[in-house]
């Protein structure tokens, strides 16, 4: 076998657009799932019994099924209930719904990590539930859960490869196409692996910097 990197020659713009699509779906999927996950966790911690059970069901179903299957159901099953989405919005929505279940559990662990006495002290002083979350719980729990959050963000970056199955033209989709065209499967797959690895390392470095920044802000 001849290892030939020239298979990528002339595909520069194609690869770049694939990378941009990966970054776009990843970033928007992560942002949406963080927001949704926080809302779900608030419901899980403070909601009524019925709401808690509903959200618990959502988390269990999402965590109990593969992302690929969820995405298929959303993309191919959606139209049956009037939800017809283009590949990119479907992919982003799928990532959001998938990631939120995990983020919700991480946030929930964060809420539970703050001693209840601090919350009692706040409520005696007349702080509302929302003020307690915003001012007492959230800043402290961020320190505790940041490593877990970064971890999940990294997992999501790699889940974007799944979007290639529903023809989202992200990096994996593009590079696989080149492989098929040139029959250079090893080169393309190795290059792909290297690309994601660099992406994850960059994210991880960013996460570390953020951790240090937050930790220095919240001296204990």
């Amino acid at each position: 076998m001849i290892f030939d990197l020239f298979v990528f020659a002339g595909s520069g713009t194609e690869i770049l657009s694939g990378l941009l699509m990966t970054l776009l779906t990843w970033a928007s999927g992560t942002a949406l799932s963080l927001a949704l996950g926080l809302v779900v966790s608030v419901g899980l911690v403070f909601g009524s019994r019925a709401l808690r059970m509903l959200l618990r069901g959502y988390v269990e179903v999402i965590r109990g099924t593969p992302f690929l299957v969820q995405l298929f159901i959303l993309y191919f099953g959606g139209p049956y209930i009037g939800l017809t989405l283009d590949p990119v919005p479907a992919g982003v929505l799928g990532l959001a719904v998938y990631g939120a279940a995990y983020f919700a559990e991480i946030f929930r662990a964060g809420f539970l990590a703050i001693p209840s006495g601090q919350i009692e002290a706040a409520s005696i002083l007349g702080l509302t539930r929302g003020q307690v979350v915003r001012r007492v719980q959230f800043p402290q729990m961020m320190v505790v859960i940041l490593p877990a959050l970064i971890n999940m963000v990294i997992i999501l970056s790699k889940e974007t490869t799944i979007l290639s199955i529903i023809t989202v033209p992200e990096l994996t989709f593009v590079v696989k196409g080149i492989g098929t065209r040139t029959f250079a499967f090893v080169e393309t797959l190795l290059a792909l692996a290297l690309g994601y690895w660099l992406l994850v390392e960059a994210t991880s470095a960013f996460g570390k910097a953020l951790e240090q920044r937050i930790a220095s802000h919240l001296t204990r």
């Binding site: 006495g117 601090q118 002290a121 706040a122 005696i124 007349g126 800043p139 402290q140 001296t219």
Partner: peptide, 24 residues
């Protein structure tokens, strides 16, 4: 309601065995 309870608690101060200061 919690809001009503909070209003009545306005005149009550409480100090705990474990202090429960906010460490941040």
């Amino acid at each position: 309601s919690d809001r009503e309870t909070a209003r009545m608690r306005r005149n009550i101060g409480m100090v705990f065995q474990q202090f429960h200061l906010w460490p941040h």
